[in-house]
Simulated scan of single mutants.
Amino acid sequence: MINGLFLVLIASIAFAFTTTEQGPPQPTSAAQRSSGPHEAAAAPLPAARPLRVTVPAIGVDAPLTDLALQDDGHLAAPPETDANLAGWWAHGPSPGTRGTAIIAGHVDIPAGPAVFYNLGALRSGMRIAVLRADGTTARFTIDTINVYDAADFPDDTVYADTGRPELRLITCGGGFDRARRQYKGNVVVSAHLTR
């Protein structure tokens, strides 16, 4: 299991907004609850390396780079040089296989908003697709969008193997601590494979 504190690392790589900017959207309380059953879960796909993630509702179409754990047990963040790059935890399940696959991305980088800036604006029932190296596309339906405080990040809830193919998209959120120059937590989108 990944150490949930890796998200603090991603959260600490935050770049100051001007005092007039409101920052990235945050999930509403309605988004944090599933609006009821959606499509039934699909059968797991064979393992294949993910190449791209798309989230049409917020205009995301991003290549994926492999991410690994650092010596301290935290997941390394994607490079800050490309605003449209997300990363996949390459030692975990690949998106579409049984288990919980993790894709992380920056909310902002020195140049401005980044790939997952609008993650908090998603809603239950919206779609995510992951193009895979075997030519297939794993399609997911969003169940919930939550924001967690970095100090109380629920590892077991976020990373647990639920017995079906699931996906988590993760970025910084929960408000910005200007004194410490970092986000206070993380936005986590939970989705399940639907075809």
Rank of each mutant, 00 (worst) to 15 (best):
T65Y: 08
A160W: 01
L67I: 10
K184F: 04
L45P: 01
R178V: 15
P165C: 08
R52Q: 11
L9Q: 09
D66W: 11
P56R: 05
G87E: 06
G23V: 07
L45A: 01
V189Q: 05
A43P: 05
I10G: 08
T137V: 15
D108L: 02
A179F: 13
A151E: 08
T65I: 15
D71E: 13
T65F: 11
A40T: 10
F176G: 00
L69Y: 05
G59I: 09
L169F: 05
A31D: 12
L85C: 08
D134H: 07
H106W: 09
D134N: 13
E39A: 15
A57F: 01
A191H: 03
C172N: 00
R127V: 06
I58C: 01
D155N: 13
D134L: 09
D71V: 06
V53C: 07
P78G: 10
H192M: 11
A133Q: 15
A57S: 14
D72V: 03
W88S: 04
V115Q: 00
M126A: 13
T18K: 11
G173S: 06
A129R: 07
H106M: 08
D71F: 06
A129I: 01
Q22L: 15
T141G: 12
T54A: 15
L9D: 07
F153G: 02
F153T: 01
Y183E: 03
V60A: 05
A129K: 03
R49P: 01
D71Q: 13
E80Q: 14
T100M: 11
E39M: 07
R52P: 01
V158I: 14
R52V: 06
S94W: 03
H106Y: 12
G92C: 10
V55W: 01
A86M: 06
R49Q: 14
G23D: 12
D66S: 15
T100G: 07
A57C: 07
V60C: 10
M1Y: 10
Q70S: 12
L131D: 14
D155A: 13
R164F: 07
N186D: 14
D152M: 04
W89I: 01
G23F: 07
G92I: 09
I142D: 02
H106E: 10
A151D: 11
I128G: 02
G120T: 05
A86L: 10
E21T: 03
A77P: 07
T28L: 09
G174L: 00
L45S: 03
A31Y: 05
V187C: 13
D143W: 05
T144Y: 09
L7T: 12
F153K: 00
A104I: 13
P79A: 12
D108A: 15
A191G: 09
L167V: 07
L122A: 03
D108P: 00
L122P: 03
V158P: 04
I2A: 06
V60M: 08
R132D: 02
W89D: 02
M1H: 11
A42N: 03
Q22E: 13
G112Y: 12
G135T: 11
N186I: 02
R139I: 10
